[in-house]
């Protein structure tokens, strides 16, 4: 395949950055998108130019490290697929492809296509856990969990923390990420004691990080490689209102 790439190049956090054009002549349709970038980088190194920096690790769609907004869509055109699992056969021969980093104040660009997503860690640190010090756990079967609750909790817990929801959201909100974790833990009986504190503290951390507010556009779910449902944002809102206006948070 022949391709024309327009890739965001930015030397460092303070650099202004710009789109730079590259041509690739011989890309296998069986290559993944990141392997196509590997080929580009090999060519750049051979020419003595700086290769494009981009985040990636597991390349099997689960670590959440790869990002990239491809032709205006986080993780590219294929639904429910991370960039690392996107293959070039999904593009046309001769196509022009724009490659940009996630854009959000809370995800500042570090270099080229690499952004800093530590704001997500801060949100989890603010309450995205169940306090269970090692060794204190009761027998696993002491607390049965209704299967529908466990299944629902799992669906929320599938979030890979990639940040595509933020990248896609016209408001730059991380409500889907937040709602997924609040729902996962809030659906489990083990998560009940901290449920109301958790939602308030995590939402504060979300707002402090500079993410935008949710206007229920649904772009997040559409972009999510795991298809995390907007239902969890409703659940987040419900828990937040119960915690605050409802006075559940003591």
């Amino acid at each position: 395949m022949k391709l024309k790439l327009r890739v965001w190049r930015q030397n460092g956090p303070k650099d202004k950055g710009k789109m730079v054009e590259y041509k690739l002549d011989d890309i296998s349709p069986d290559a993944s998108f990141l392997e196509m970038l590997d080929v580009l980088n090999e060519e750049l190194i051979a020419k003595g130019e700086e290769p494009v920096a981009f985040d990636h690790d597991c390349r099997e769609g689960i670590c959440g490290m790869c990002s990239l907004v491809i032709n205006g869509t986080p993780h590219g055109p294929e639904k429910m697929t991370t960039t690392c699992q996107l293959h070039m056969r999904k593009f046309k021969d001769g196509e022009t492809i724009d490659v940009e980093p996630w854009r959000a104040k809370a995800f500042p660009v570090v270099k080229d296509l690499v952004v800093d997503r530590s704001a997500f860690d801060d949100i989890i640190a603010a309450g995205g856990y169940i306090t269970a010090p090692t060794g204190t756990a009761p027998e696993a079967h002491a607390t049965p969990v209704p299967k529908p609750d466990a299944d629902k909790a799992f669906e929320a817990a599938e979030c890979i923390g990639c940040g595509a929801c933020v990248a896609a959201c016209p408001n730059g909100s991380a409500s889907l990420f937040l709602g997924a974790k609040v729902s996962h833990l809030g659906l489990m009986p083990q998560g009940q004691p901290e449920r109301w504190d958790r939602v308030v503290n995590m939402l504060e951390a979300h707002d402090d990080a500079g993410f935008g507010g949710c206007t229920n556009t649904g772009e997040c779910t559409a972009a999510c490689p795991k298809g995390i449902s907007q239902d969890f944002i409703s659940r987040l809102n419900s828990d937040y209102l119960k915690a605050t206006a409802g006075g559940k948070k003591k």
């Binding site: 327009r6 032709n71 205006g72 869509t73 854009r103 730059g172 500079g210 935008g212 649904g218 772009e219």
Partner: peptide
């Protein structure tokens, strides 16, 4: 909300952002 959104994404995307929401 609009102001917050603008604040949350100070640098816009270069390519036209496609909407996939229903």
């Amino acid at each position: 909300l609009g102001k917050r959104a603008a604040h949350a994404r100070p640098v816009k995307y270069k390519s036209k952002k496609k909407s996939h929401a229903q």
